[in-house]
């Protein structure tokens, strides 16, 4: 079976790639485009470490085929900072020590960004449920939730 040719947008840049129909978007990002910031923790949509935004929707890159990316706009952790300016969430995660090993961090950041774009003033419970698909085994979630709430407040101009 010949590989499929896919045209898409990744972090604002037009990107073309070839892939097998079986390859997931995560396989393509990591192994074809070398965007390894999205992590494979489970390959079954249970850990959220591969969270990306596809046409404005938060998804697990491991649960999309690469060929499904045709014509979509994909946003990954690599596109989160604006040049040398970190996104406020990235800064707050550092200030709050909201990461230990850091392997789940890209997924949490992408997911939290998607939350704050929809809901600039989430409650603690809303943050916790929105992020329930992102597993972290190091932090017990406390500092992550605080970092997201603090970012939301700052971005609201609080």
């Amino acid at each position: 079976m010949a590989k499929a040719h896919v045209t898409t947008t990744v972090n604002g840049d037009a990107v073309e790639f070839l892939c097998d129909a079986e390859q997931t978007l995560l396989d393509v990002l990591r192994d074809e485009l070398y965007l390894t910031g999205s992590k494979e923790g489970c390959a079954s949509g249970d850990c959220g470490a591969c969270s990306v935004i596809a046409d404005g929707r938060l998804v697990c890159a491991c649960l999309m085929l690469g060929v499904e990316a045709e014509g979509l706009a994909i946003e990954t952790i690599e596109g989160m900072a604006d040049g040398d300016q970190l996104h406020p969430l990235q800064t707050k995660f550092l200030e709050h020590a909201a990461l230990q090993c850091g392997v789940c961090t890209p997924g949490f950041l992408v997911a939290a960004k998607s939350l704050l774009e929809r809901n600039p003033d989430p409650t603690e419970i809303e943050v916790r449920y929105w992020l329930a698909g992102n597993l972290c085994r190091c932090t017990g979630y406390d500092k992550i939730v605080r970092a997201v709430l603090d970012t939301a407040e700052e971005m609201r101009g609080g």
Partner: peptide, 17 residues
């Protein structure tokens, strides 16, 4: 702020895979 922090919030840090 931890010295390896920025790499870990930007996806730049290189893990095993």
């Amino acid at each position: 702020v931890r010295p390896d922090g920025v790499d870990k919030v930007t996806g730049r840090a290189r893990f095993g895979a």
